[in-house]
Amino acid sequence: MAVATSAQATSRREAPGTSYGRKLLRLNWLGGTAGWLWLVIVIVPIYWIVITSFKDQSAFFAQNPFALPAEPTLANYQLVIESDFPRYFLNSVIITAGTIIPAVAIAFMAAYAIIRGAGSKFLAGVNGLFLMGLAIPLQATIIPVYLLIIKMHLYDSLLAIILPSIAFSIPLSVLVLTNFIRDVPKELFESMRVDGATEWGMLRSLALPLTRPALVTVSIYNGLGVWNGFLLPLILTQSPDKRPLPLALWTFQGQYSVNVPAVLASVVLTTLPIVVLYAIGRRQLLSGLTAGFSR
């Protein structure tokens, strides 16, 4: 068999060696070009945002857009900070932390139950329900959610954003966490159980430490979604003092649309905390993400 295929292959190649080499070169060349080209496409707008945010308006109109600011100014940042952005920042922090901590905790408990209670029809059904949730654009349920929030007298509060956000984070979190808890060797559970540990005890002292990377991944991934969320605050709040950052960005842009450097400074300021967090947790996020989705 092997002989036959290699014989076929040799007969297929008219100039052995050279054609293989050339093909190899061509594909590497293609991938490499695409890779560096994409880097340029990603970096150019980001570079432009950052340098423009340090220019004053006259420099913005006069200068080459890619030139570094001749007289860098922090006035744009000052304007943004004076426009109540610390308040919006705080709102975003409260909403994100208020969503992610309970969401990941309850998703972890559910994932633990789904793995440990395998065989239970009830838990299989719960798992199926969450998997179905992945296929449904949950934003489509925004009108009843709006009605629900009004009926709960939560309209125009941070809790109005937090509660649906928790629910929307659950399907993906449960999916990724079940994948990781499944990898914990069954023998470990068994030996702990023999030692008299309760399920709750095993969840805390066995499953939790062993799946910590997955918990971090899920927290960052969902945290990004909530931090950057726009639709829920747009629909479920109205007062300026309840605005999270993305909504504040949008209104700020509406107000100062002519002052492009200031608008871009607001973009930089709202992204900076995330970039810092990314710099810290990047390794776990990238590896967790590929592990979570590529199984």
Binding site: A107, A113, G117, L123, V145, P164, A167, I170, W200
Partner: peptide, 26 residues
Amino acid sequence: SGPVAWMALPALVFFLVFGVVPLFGV
């Protein structure tokens, strides 16, 4: 399976109230 099953309840309740109920609500 009792003590394990209850652990899924908080997530289930949240998802039912803000996911499934609105799905039928719409």
